[in-house]
Amino acid sequence: MTPDQLFVRRYRDLAAYNAWANRRLYAAVGRLDDGQYRADRGAFFGSVHGTLNHLLVGDRLWMRRITGTGDEPARLDTILFRTLPELAEARTAEDARISAHMDGLDAATLAAELYYANVAGARFVQPLASVLDHFFNHQTHHRGQLHCLVSGFLGNEGAPSLDLIAFQRESGLARPG
């Protein structure tokens, strides 16, 4: 594989990991009762419900900046969906959108500069690859918060492994030597 092919594959793999981790996390969240799901546990976005909504808000904001299409929530704490089933359906659709977009990228596009404004209106420019590094890291950051919240309710055995290496082994990106 050429360096350019590896560069492009990285973001396709991260999109696949993102969808895999979200499926696993949503399955665990589905075992919470409504009180647990909505309880303000002191996380940055309060509850499991608030944090799941924030993850979708962030993805939609960044995908809008990257693609020029899609929703553009006005606030980072916007509650896009009131119920877990609605949120799960939207999450699955957004993960498919992210994967489809990553599948269409090439090395030149990844190296190109992206001009965007944040929610406060400040303007920035940086290479798309750098933006995508943040995009996928942001998701991992908040999934870690969610994992902690779920573990608090269901115990460690109730919270799934979200380790990247577990995904890589399960998907065949890593194999026994």
Rank of each mutant, 00 (worst) to 15 (best):
R175P: 02
G42I: 11
L146H: 06
L114S: 03
E113S: 14
M63N: 01
V131H: 03
R10T: 09
P176F: 08
R123V: 03
Q139D: 14
A21C: 13
A27E: 15
A122P: 00
L146F: 11
L80H: 08
G158D: 12
G70E: 04
L25W: 00
G30I: 00
V29E: 00
A19W: 14
L87N: 01
A100H: 14
D4V: 09
T2Q: 10
M1E: 11
D40P: 04
M63I: 06
Y116A: 03
L55W: 03
L56V: 06
D40H: 13
A19C: 12
G46H: 14
E72C: 07
L32I: 02
F45P: 06
N118R: 00
Y17F: 15
G152W: 09
A159N: 10
G42T: 07
L162T: 13
Q5H: 05
P73I: 01
A174K: 11
E170R: 13
N22R: 07
F124M: 00
H147W: 14
L149C: 02
L128P: 05
V150C: 05
V57P: 02
A15G: 01
A88Q: 13
A122C: 06
H101Q: 00
D34W: 08
P85H: 10
F167M: 01
A93N: 12
N18D: 15
A117L: 09
L110I: 08
G58Q: 06
A39G: 04
G68D: 08
G50L: 07
Y115W: 13
D71S: 01
N53G: 01
N118Y: 04
Q145L: 04
R65D: 05
S47F: 05
G35C: 07
F135T: 00
G144R: 10
L128D: 04
M63F: 05
